[in-house]
Amino acid sequence: MDLVSLLLIFLMFVGSVGFVIQPLFKRSVSFPAESDELELLKLKKRIIYRQIKELEMDYEIGNLSQDDYLLTRNELKREVAKVIEKIKSYSRKK
């Protein structure tokens, strides 16, 4: 085995071990993420908004009757209102 290979193996081993165990020497830390629950509510809101947009598109291009469009749109609006209310109450709690 040549010297360069030996040096590379040494660096690889020491580097890997040092990199992996470094967090153990930190003081107590916690997960920095924004709450998954709030993220989930925001995502739900965006999905429903997108569904409303697609519904409008379907209605405009004639894929939906007016009755179906209005019925579904109102249902989606009610759903999104509930989600927005939950987001607000979550923000108030924080």
Partner: peptide, 19 residues
């Protein structure tokens, strides 16, 4: 549930991939 262990595991997974 010690987050330091998670970070260690995450770095170890990175190490596995880099190797």
């Amino acid at each position: 549930n010690d987050y330091r262990l998670y970070l260690t595991g995450q770095r170890s997974a990175l190490g596995v991939s880099v190797l």
